[in-house]
Amino acid sequence: MSLAKLSESRLKGPLPGNPACPACPHNIGLKILGMVLGDKAVVVVPAGCTSIISGVWPTAGIDLPILHVPFASAGAVASGLKAAYQVHGEDAIVVVWSGDGGAADIGFATLSGAAIRNEDIIVIVSDNEAYMNTGVQASGTTPWKALTTTSPIKGKSEERKDIAMIMLMHKIPYVATASIGYPLDFRDKLLRASKISGFRFIHLHSPCPPGWRFEGGKTVEIAKLAVETGAWILWEYIDGNIEISRPSIKYSDKAYRKPVKEYLKHQGRYRNLSDDDIRYIEERIDENWRNIGIFMETLKSGRMT
């Protein structure tokens, strides 16, 4: 399916006029989720932006079966739901659609529990890098120095946690990063994940216009810049190996990467950065690439079991 056709398709997923903010990245992600798994998915949604996007009864914002659950419960609820389907022979794919707080922070224990049991579910973390639904407070995945309402002047003082790598350490069959800026890559990953059984984890990068302080029309552009500057690396762990995904391959070579300033300058949350800060961020990006390279080699060589 071409991008143009994808944008026109009226398949299951978010409905027009739902309560999402203008240019919300979650709607893009949910659309692809609905397109790929709409007929089979039952979606578990912990507290977060999607609790709102789902709509106010009696209207609906998303035409998928959605079970709303408390913040720190999604992994366990999905495990139980899948267990019920296994008992009753129901052919359904249980999907957790979570934000970064619901997965990486308050909901991490239950997510980790579901992963280590290798529950037959798909978890998608649509990561907008802060607690956006409560009004942009710093989360475990908020990047260093980003301004939020709980890091309002100096920016966040800690690094973000790499939730995809942490999930990989649970020895689950499938882990991938994705970006709403690359819908076909995300679609292909969802498709591949849906054909595997066990715990599958997709970390979806979702730039948030009000939270990151950029113009609404630029959601996809910012998402793409994150990849083009190498700040967000698209990769996939499948069959025991990590591969850099097609849109990111080029940026393995630093020479092709755009300066990270191109990505940061559009975002009001980085207006506090000094040149030294930007240099530091660039060094961290290089380090991330080095690390994933080392990790890929280690997996390939079979030195890690």
């Binding site: 609790s51 009864w57 079970l67 359904a92």
Partner: peptide
């Protein structure tokens, strides 16, 4: 909860 139908439990 069953797949295939737009149906929300616990929404606003």
């Amino acid at each position: 909860m069953k797949p295939g139908e737009g149906f929300a439990v616990g929404n606003l």
